[in-house]
Amino acid sequence: MAWIPRFITFTGLVLLAHAGYSAQEHAALASTTAQHSNQAGTSTSLPIDISIETIVATMAVCIGLVLNTPNLRPIQWNVWAGKIEREGAEGFRDSSGAVEKDYRGNPFSTLESRPGFVDIRKQRREFAEWAKSEST
């Protein structure tokens, strides 16, 4: 389902390019007409269909971009961290179903596994006893 926002955005951009080209052609035509006809004050305002096309194209691109934005995060840290702890990576899927790129997992992982606080002497002693029991 990830292609729907992109398709909307692309359609809107094509429409916008077409509207821009039409407006430019209209401006060029209007200036030439004004040169060749001697009467001043000819109407050079944009035709209504180009205006409508521009507005519709803008709205389409806008909807496509909004649908394509990644999900928002709860601003309160405890709500956000609670969501991560309850749902894990499942709660951070974007519209295409893939896990978001900047999903980092537990925000407290640096606090929960601090290498500087590991009791290395105890682990070394346990390893020595295990190695001794294996060798006998």
Binding site: G20, A23, L46, A57, T58
Partner: peptide, 10 residues
């Protein structure tokens, strides 16, 4: 994008 729109609309 809105700048493009405003420019085209003149």
């Amino acid at each position: 994008l809105f700048g493009v729109t405003a420019g085209i609309l003149g």
